[in-house]
Nucleic acid binder design. Structure first.
Length: 449
RNA sequence: GCUGGGGUAGGGUAGCUGGUCAUCCUUUGGGACUGUGGAUCCCAUGACCCGGGUUCAAAUCCCGGCUCCGGCCCCA
């Protein structure tokens, strides 16, 4: 038995690697044009970085280990936390906004299935230092364009946590996890039952999460207004909490709440959300407003979004992101950022790419003139964009030509004593079989088109 | 963690109601063809996922494990 690759990992053969490289290049070109500079972070980090961000429970799904010095380390399971760690460590004083992008492998200890591996690649961008609708619109539009640039059609859903969080603060804390679970699992009947049971059915939660599309926004505005009235009524424990989360344009509002229970501050400010939706329109991005998107994590501050693709089976989410408050959690100054991560492997599963690697040129020679052939090959490699192949198997001329056609060469440069003497090589068109005698310079000119 | 279906040369397969040297195609290397390729022919290399069990005899039947492809759970 030979040694197998570890479960959930993949080998990428030349054809795969070429395709992945081409798609990656396309996406990164676009990111550069939008002014997002590439950064890289270590493959492993202190385990703590990830538990701070996502809680202790995630260690279950992390490749965590102790190094020889006894340090608790982890292979990165995602890239947002490392990027924000880097920001806090060395970029806090950089002029804002900061536009960054990254591409890297991540590791999670999970059951592999379609579109899910133990080593996978994430491509993403972060815009650090602004949470204005302008910033959010740019980032969301960018995400959508990136996916399009790979030839993939994505369905963008745009959500806003302010409303749902406000509602959640008006129900008893003990009931919140259960309610969130039902929302997440799309268990409408159970949710309705629960809300009735705890006397929270007047908040409109059920209606909110069913709101979809353009008109959802108008209705949500009305609901927000009703909510602010309710929250002004003096009543039980909901009162103090909702005050702390009071709506405000000041991005530092609610920070006390953040410190006490790790939840980021958020704004019940649908006007800004409305602005975002309008701006996205300007970008030509079609978004479905969808208040059901909750994205689990509590460091998101308001806007969240996800992009889905068809043809992927169960794992159809190819992008997720939003506006968040993470720098503070990692010990930096409180800074709001908007960003997203794209599941590169899932993109690759459905990408339609017609690009092919350039076909090589074969230098074919007989033993007596080997050194001339080597020199010719070197010169060709310096001047031509396509690969230049030289026989290393000691094969005869016929076998070399056979090999040339096997590797898909479109031309062969034939070199023998006769050619060396004349100072001209034979250029053979592998498709037609026609040949002509040319100087190396002329060959280069001809092939360099 | 739960669940369905698979694992036979590098790739694709036949055999799998147990019993001759495990089938065929392709790929790879060599040759027929010692300065001209895609054809053909010949030769060579190369496999029963691993470990137990049943049996005179296991690729074939049974059990366990590993792993792959899906579906749940989860998904930062």
């Amino acid at each position: 038995m030979t040694i197998q690759r570890p479960r959930g990992t993949r080998d990428f053969l030349p054809e795969d690697s070429f395709k992945r490289g081409a798609v990656r290049k396309r996406m990164q070109d676009l990111l550069e044009r939008w002014g997002y500079l590439e950064i890289s972070t270590p493959t492993f980090e202190h385990l703590e970085l990830f538990t701070i961000k996502s809680g202790q429970s995630i260690t279950e799904e992390i490749y965590a280990f102790k190094d020889k010095g006894g340090r608790d380390l982890a292979l990165r399971p995602e890239l947002t936390a490392p990027v924000m760690r880097m920001y806090v460590n060395e970029l806090q004083m950089a002029p804002k906004p900061l536009r960054l992008h990254y591409f890297g492998n991540c590791f999670r200890y999970e059951r592999p299935q379609r579109g899910r591996f133990r080593e996978f690649w994430q491509l993403g961008a972060e815009l650090i230092g602004s949470d204005r609708p302008d910033a959010e619109a740019e980032v969301i539009a960018l995400a959508q364009k990136l996916i399009k640039s790979a030839g993939v059609n994505g369905d963008l859903h745009l959500g806003y946590l302010g409303l749902i969080r406000t509602m959640m603060r008006m129900i008893p804390a003990s009931e919140r996890p259960a309610v969130m679970k039902f929302i997440d699992k799309k268990e409408r009947a159970l949710l309705a039952e629960k809300l009735q049971e705890i006397g929270a059915d007047h908040l409109g939660l059920l209606e909110l999460i069913d709101l979809k599309g353009r008109r959802a926004l108008d209705r949500a505005m009305e609901m927000a207004e009703d909510l602010s009235k309710i929250s002004e009524e003096p009543s039980k424990d909901a009162k103090t909490e909702s005050l702390e989360a009071a709506p405000s344009g000041d991005s530092d509002s609610g920070d006390r709440a953040a410190r006490s229970d790790r939840a980021a501050p958020f704004d019940l400010d649908l006007v800004r959300f409305q602005e975002l939706v309008d701006l996205l329109d300007c970008y030509g991005v079609k978004a479905t407003v969808d208040f059901e998107i909750v994205r689990g994590l509590d460091y998101y501050t308001g806007t969240v979004f996800e992009i889905y693709a068809t043809g992927l089976g169960a794992q159809n989410q190819i992008c997720g992101g939003g506006t968040y408050q993470l720098a503070g959690l990692l010990g930096g100054q409180k800074t709001r950022s908007t960003g997203f991560g794209i599941g590169f492997d899932r993109i690759m599963e459905i990408v339609a790419l017609e690009e092919k690697p350039p076909s090589p040129v074969a230098v074919v020679f007989v033993p007596q003139v080997r050194s001339e052939a080597v020199k010719a090959a070197i010169e060709l490699r310096e001047s031509l964009p396509m690969p230049v192949a030289l026989d290393v198997m000691g094969r005869g001329l016929g076998a070399q030509l056979k090999q040339a056609s096997n590797i898909g060469a479109s031309f062969a440069v034939i070199i023998g004593p006769k050619e060396v003497e004349e100072g001209k090589f034979t250029l053979r068109d592998m498709l037609t079989g026609s040949q002509e005698s040319l100087a190396l310079k002329e060959i280069i000119e001809l092939l360099d088109e």
